[in-house]
Design a protein around this nucleic acid. Structure first.
Lengths: 135, 135
DNA sequence: TGGAATTGGGTTAATGCTGAACCAATTTCC
DNA sequence: GGAAATTGGTTCAGCATTAACCCAATTCCA
């Protein structure tokens, strides 16, 4: 067993994720959604404020503004001022937004599931544990 | 143990990698290098032709053209026409290029190593095995 | 052999993204 | 209370990226 080189693992991992996402990118855009926008949609339930989304997804704030604007225009997102803090804009998926988010997520699951399928069920569970530990 | 959702694992993993890379981005640019350019530099030994780089890194060809042009201008890369196939441009790291690539890689290793350090040596090895299996 | 198809790489015009600067609401703290 | 600092969000100018198209070299195959 050769010595562990963190950058090598990072790179290997990065390549894997990029290959998966670019393999489904066209199917995702066919839903009327950019991949970056899908990430936002998929994270709105957990982080319903733009600033939180930016931090959670490591995206600059102006980009979030832009994505949210597009998603709202597309009818996937609703935006309302938070009554407790008039600076904050609380975001919420519309039914259409939730549906398209689930469809996009499903595409991603299918593509990544193909790779995951090369592992045993135990290994898949182990992988998740390892990733959670590092997160 | 809850059911495995591939998209969830993908997303968890993606977030982890993005957090790591954005934490070192400024240090990397301080080397006179953009992060995308570092990826290219780090892959030149394995894939010495632009088309190979594009495929390997999931980057569009015009982007590779641009990165290579910048890297060559910075003196990190040499480019020569392949005598066997006059269309191909064989790329090669210069000593300066290799040095800066190692420095950049080292920064990435340090940052990701912090996360990896939360795992035991066996778990780190296991992670690599799992990723390689999926690649 | 030689035309069609493929492949490597580049150019350009258009689009996407983001750093810097900004405003408004809130919080801090004297 | 109220000036200063912080935080949420936006705007815009400028840079980064890429889709569409191009050319030249190579390969395929009749």
């Amino acid at each position: 067993m050769s010595k562990i080189d963190p950058a090598r693992i990072w790179s290997l991992n990065h390549r894997l994720l990029m290959a998966v996402i670019s393999s489904v990118a066209s199917d995702i855009t066919a839903l009327g959604l950019e991949t970056k926008e899908l990430f936002v949609l998929a994270d709105v339930d957990a982080h319903p404020y733009p600033a939180e989304l930016a931090a959670s997804l490591c995206i600059p704030k102006p980009s979030v503004t832009l994505y949210v604007k597009r998603l709202e225009a597309a009818g996937f997102l609703r935006r309302e001022i938070d009554t407790a803090d008039l600076r904050r804009h609380r975001l919420q998926l519309t039914p259409a937004g939730r549906k398209v988010m689930q469809q996009g997520t499903s595409l991603l699951s299918q593509a990544f599931g193909e790779r995951l399928g090369r592992l045993s069920a135990t290994q898949q569970a182990e992988l998740r544990v390892l990733l959670e530990k590092m997160s």
